[in-house]
Design a protein around this nucleic acid. Structure first.
Length: 113
DNA sequence: GAGGTGACTGCGA
DNA sequence: CTCGCAGCCACCT
């Protein structure tokens, strides 16, 4: 089967939507959950298209391993991502999620059981 | 068909 | 602790 990345993308979108409100996740965590090793970049790339997917994927809840809003530029407005995170109740400072470690949400935690 | 880039991560100095 | 490099895979030119 020509397993198109579309499946991979769909999985990423699905997991991203599963992220609880007020929580954030990382590319590596999602990639790992999907069983993709070192696929963090692919996750990020998927997020690039997620912006066009419907329903829109909360890509703003997905940040890099450092909790840094690396992809804020892809939202069209840099403040958009931060604003959305704040709307979720997440404090963002200098493009970085406050208490990221505490707000960090791992798909395996909620989906593993 | 080949080369270059990228919303990442981990390890080494 | 901070900085730099290499690996990874799909998409774009």
């Amino acid at each position: 089967m020509q397993k198109r990345q579309q499946d991979f993308f769909s999985d990423v979108y699905e997991v991203a939507r599963l992220i609880p409100k007020g929580r954030v996740s990382s590319y590596g965590a999602i990639a790992k959950y999907l069983g993709v090793v070192s696929g963090a970049r692919m996750v990020g790339y998927a997020m690039n298209a997620a912006h066009q997917q419907v329903p829109p994927v909360p890509a703003h809840r997905v940040v890099n391993r450092n909790g840094l809003l690396t992809g804020k530029h892809h939202f069209g407005a840099e403040d958009e991502m931060q604003k959305r995170l704040e709307m979720e109740g997440i404090c963002v400072e200098k493009d970085q999620v406050v208490d990221f470690k505490k707000l960090f949400w791992d798909p395996s935690i909620d989906l593993a059981l």
